[in-house]
């Protein structure tokens, strides 16, 4: 196996980085059970980075800012930092969307909560034929196994 000089330098840099990382003191990342509620923080809605540094030693807080796009973009954040989500959201919060069988779509079950950006709002039955042609991967993510595809099978077979 031939290792050229560039690969060797890169390997040494990675190893040096790992040694430095392992020997550096780490911030405490053991999270609290509960985050103060919005009522405790004031009457105005806040983003994470309004109180926390956008990036501090423990977390890159700006990536958790609940912008209007967060509901469709939280996969990685929830995946890598589930315990941070659970400081504010109860366990069943995720299950309105992420469950094996959801007979009532989230925007219907929580219809009066219009401030939440929820998928499939209103007349989605008509529009889904277009969105599914354009990007079926977004459908498959939630409707891709035999149980969750039951809603599709009624019409599509």
């Amino acid at each position: 196996m031939i290792i050229n000089t560039q690969s060797l330098v890169l390997l040494l840099l990675c190893l040096t980085g790992l040694v430095v990382a392992c020997s550096s003191p780490q911030p405490n990342t053991q999270l609290q059970d509960k985050h103060p509620s919005q009522g405790d923080l004031g009457v105005k809605p806040l983003m994470c980075s309004d109180c926390h540094d956008a990036q501090d030693q423990a977390f890159s807080w700006e990536q958790f800012n609940h912008t209007a796009f967060f509901p469709t973009q939280h996969r990685l954040q929830a995946n890598q930092h589930q315990q941070l989500c659970s400081m504010c959201h109860q366990r069943n919060f995720c299950s309105d969307c992420h469950a094996t069988r959801v007979e009532l779509k989230p925007s219907l079950k929580n219809q009066s909560e219009t401030f939440r950006q929820m998928p499939h709002r209103g007349d989605y039955l008509s529009r889904h034929r277009i969105d599914a042609r354009i990007d079926p991967t977004s459908c498959f993510r939630c409707h891709g196994n035999p149980q969750t595809a039951k809603n599709c099978v009624k019409c599509h077979g």
Partner: peptide, 29 residues
């Protein structure tokens, strides 16, 4: 300003292939 540029790529033959369970509207994809 919060700015988020992104790139996504999906290969349907690999993304939708779920072996014997590929069914419903996704099977042909």
């Amino acid at each position: 300003f919060s700015i988020r540029p992104y790139y996504e790529m999906f290969e349907y033959d690999d993304y939708f292939d779920a072996g014997a369970l590929s069914g419903g509207p996704f099977a042909s994809l």
